[in-house]
Design a protein around this nucleic acid. Sequence first.
DNA 1: ACCTGAACACCGTTCAAGT
DNA 2: ACCTGAACACCGTTCAAGT
Lengths: 197, 197
Amino acid sequence: MTADVSTQTAQKPLRADAQRNYDNLIEAAREAFRERGAEASLDDIAKRAGVGPGTLYRHFPTRDALIDAMMRDWAERIDADSQAVVDSGLPAREALQIWFTRFVDNIGLYHGAAAKVMSAMDDPKSPIYRKCQVLAAANEKVVAKAREDGALRDGVDAREVMRIVSGVSTVIDQSGLTPAQAEPMLAIVLDGILLPD
Amino acid sequence: MTADVSTQTAQKPLRADAQRNYDNLIEAAREAFRERGAEASLDDIAKRAGVGPGTLYRHFPTRDALIDAMMRDWAERIDADSQAVVDSGLPAREALQIWFTRFVDNIGLYHGAAAKVMSAMDDPKSPIYRKCQVLAAANEKVVAKAREDGALRDGVDAREVMRIVSGVSTVIDQSGLTPAQAEPMLAIVLDGILLPD
DNA sequence: ACCTGAACACCGTTCAAGT
DNA sequence: ACCTGAACACCGTTCAAGT
């Protein structure tokens, strides 16, 4: 189940120069997206990577395909974070609080990332859909643990929890707040899904 | 306090042809934004209004200035909705539930509107900032009423409530859900801010 | 098999020339 | 005082020519 992360994905091996271009493009994209946000110029990314624009398009036919490739290790980080929380044995409120905080951190890859992940959540045609499924599964796991502990209100659905925490993430991202400023909103969510007392 | 809404804003009167162009541009913008979302082509809007692109820029030097003009009656609708809820005499939960639902509806003017309002919320330099202030004041009023009724948890801040409901609105908008599908998320917010029992 | 970069298209923005 | 539309700049996207 553990994939080879050092090269492309799980595809046929690339020619040496192509592999280098591929890696350079992803690195350049990370920089550019961090600096400029989700609308970063693809031409600029190609320039930073030292390749022609055609090469970028060869490897990544769409902007989303490039973003998807940038997020390779992201899914693994998500899995690790959710597993750590479930294994921690912490009480439900603390466990969920940590998980939500990690959620907001992880989804804030660059300006506009939270919104992009959100649109992909319900769109199976999006290249990022798979990544969202990983996030959904991780969230489901943490919420299920809290439910087993008898801590959740009746009718609380993991999917809705994921949606609302994504919403909080978008607020942080779009309003230019720091991740720490998500805390009051996350407190509302916690009180909203946990049984009182 | 009630403004003349049939012409420009509260500015000097425009020459007759300029006023017609101004109105046509706003109408064209409403159509275009509804169809194409927040990134609608300005050139296309000018064409729809039957004017040159220069005319659009004369009246609205930035995209946000045009959006702000489109939202003229919006602020009044917000005010009316919040007042109606406060005057209704409904119990806090029902009142807030109706207000939040209206909030989500109102902020979903076109695809991308919720995110735009959110970014303007904490940015006094945005042309839309004033409109956000109106929304914030209306929300404050409804939340204050619930607090007077002794229905709110300690430490619940109207600003945070506005942020999280804006977040819910963005989820609806970005994920292509219907406003009705906000209900489970709004239920979480309600349980999160109201005193149990 | 992969890369380059010129070429095209589209759109935002400005401004000189008009009325 | 206001409008027009040509002109420019920037960027996404394609593709013929190269290695």
